[in-house]
Write a protein that binds this DNA or RNA. Sequence first.
DNA 1: TCCGTCTCGGAAAGCCCTTTCCGGAAGGGG
DNA 2: CCCCTTCCGGAAAGGGCTTTCCGAGACGGA
Lengths: 362, 362
Amino acid sequence: MTTARESSTGRRTDQDGPTVVRRSGPVLLSEVAAHAGVSLATASRVLSGSRSVGEPHRGRVLAAAQELRYTPNAQAQAVARGASNVVGLIIHDVLDPYFSSIAGGVMREVEERELVVFLASTHSDVDRELEFVQTMRSHRVRALIICGSRTTDRAHNERLVHELEGYAAAGGQAAVISQDRLGTHAVVPQNRAGARELGRELVRLGHRRFAVLAGPRGLLASRDRLTGFREGLAAEGVDTADLQVLHGDFTREGGERLAAQLVAEGSTATCVFAVNDVMALGALAAFRAAGVRVPEDVSLAGFDDIAPLRDVVPSLTSVRLPLAEMGARAAQLALDTEPQTTSQTVRVDAEVVLRDSTRRLA
Amino acid sequence: MTTARESSTGRRTDQDGPTVVRRSGPVLLSEVAAHAGVSLATASRVLSGSRSVGEPHRGRVLAAAQELRYTPNAQAQAVARGASNVVGLIIHDVLDPYFSSIAGGVMREVEERELVVFLASTHSDVDRELEFVQTMRSHRVRALIICGSRTTDRAHNERLVHELEGYAAAGGQAAVISQDRLGTHAVVPQNRAGARELGRELVRLGHRRFAVLAGPRGLLASRDRLTGFREGLAAEGVDTADLQVLHGDFTREGGERLAAQLVAEGSTATCVFAVNDVMALGALAAFRAAGVRVPEDVSLAGFDDIAPLRDVVPSLTSVRLPLAEMGARAAQLALDTEPQTTSQTVRVDAEVVLRDSTRRLA
DNA sequence: TCCGTCTCGGAAAGCCCTTTCCGGAAGGGG
DNA sequence: CCCCTTCCGGAAAGGGCTTTCCGAGACGGA
């Protein structure tokens, strides 16, 4: 197309006539049109393929676009078309494997559809979550996926619903993960059932005295898992009245702290259930530091089955959640559903995976 | 402002006159202006604060905006202003802790400036990388951060440089991590020096026979680490002519495979250096599966010091890279530098961290 | 040969904002 | 008291694109 000699700088056309002052900034469609000697409309039609254009013109526009290195202004396109091709994703933290797995699932779906994703991380700050919904709405994202945590904070929930209504009213589609009753599509893990099953399994292994490292009191995910766990124990005939429950914050440091506290208090529990794996990992480290062996001295179980679990010793018993699929599912709900459809809720099963960190008592 | 009775639906004005058909879609600035009884320009000025507006008008616009739940169209603003407030970030994979740590650093900086980030993951596909640069350029991101890997693929490098030139010519700022000579700002870790120091330390521990689990042959990061490692060994008087080098792909599975191969071949190496931690983790798993004890039977060292390392037993020797800071630094370069400044290269030090996976030989 | 039907190119309106430009009103100095 | 400045509101001209609307030419059928 261009000869080898000339192609390196690619400004072949600048050579005929006096040197043209290179306007800074992006190349415009109008320049492409002018360069090709056609109207703006024709250039637009060729490049966005909205209508067929005769071969002579078509070829010239394409050539001009390539030569000028034209890149359409996606923002302007979005404004003109009244529809954007970006998807918003709000999570707590990219560094947390739970969220990054989900994000991975979302991104897979998004990229398959040739869309882009806006990623925002709230660092568990509910106000930032609200702000980001605003931001996403402002950017007119075609779909919004929120992977947050349902809390018992009524005021906040109402504001969130309000924001989401605003977003929906503006024509956006939303899906939330691990939350529901928000008036949007939802993907909810069976926290309670999973924890219940875990509880039963642990009792079957011979455990009777448990301690639970729970999350923040206001988080429904933590609550559900705790409730389910209690039900599981009860179902196997264990009295849960004196179940030891410590409340933390879903972080590794929190897990570490609570486990250390357990050790310091001289807890008699033979099995510790951390309501999420990140805390379980923290607890494992704390136990190790304190010289408490897992599972010989105490059994330990987590929840979520996050990826890094594969590399810890002993391998951690957990309740498996198909995180990437959850993300993908949420993306599908938000992207493939007709705007006016009533919102769907997808429940995903949680599956107990017994590993080496929980031992059978004699 | 509105009475309790009327405020719930917020369509007070719909009540005078026949029911107005509620236009679907977002609320427009013109509607706010009309509602407030001022001109479009005034409404714009109040809401974007570009010029002072007298109190009576100001208050009415604010009230109207709130009542109508107006959210400005960020895309249109970007077009009109000729500047967007989004930052592009291209990484290989969100699930890889190396990349998510960097992403975390980038996002911290970005969010501090009230900007948003477009996240794209290439899954190590160089063509996708190129495509994404295009996409980001198309979205007119204010800054672009690429955390890729410099390869020896000349053709690809040229195309990448070309794309980046296009991006820069269009007025964008770019920073790359772990790459250089791309004509952009760069943050480059001292791979070679770090690996060299690691090599020396390992020899000082008494090791003489090494095996290296390298990355893809074409990746400069892998190459540099290998070269540095060789230099370190040589500096301590170890002959590196017969150094055993296996090439993998920087993934966990790759590390697993290579380590298994090492075991199968009956390698006599007393120490294995995986050029990145992810492969080291894979190797650790493979060794464990094969009954090879670390560090009793073989010592193992990695590179990067990714976060999940803290939970592994034995704790892994590695070369620490300040990943989050690297991301943050790149973001700063791209965001805080004047557009026409010559590109800067920031070198970041790598620090050897000896842990339990490498033992001292008798 | 003539007319209806297509196909295709261009002009211009429109997408939702921002910002410049103007004009009028208010305020201060001579 | 007048003029010059300052302040502020509105009209309108952008920003870069899509799409509607028209008209002109090409083509086929009668």
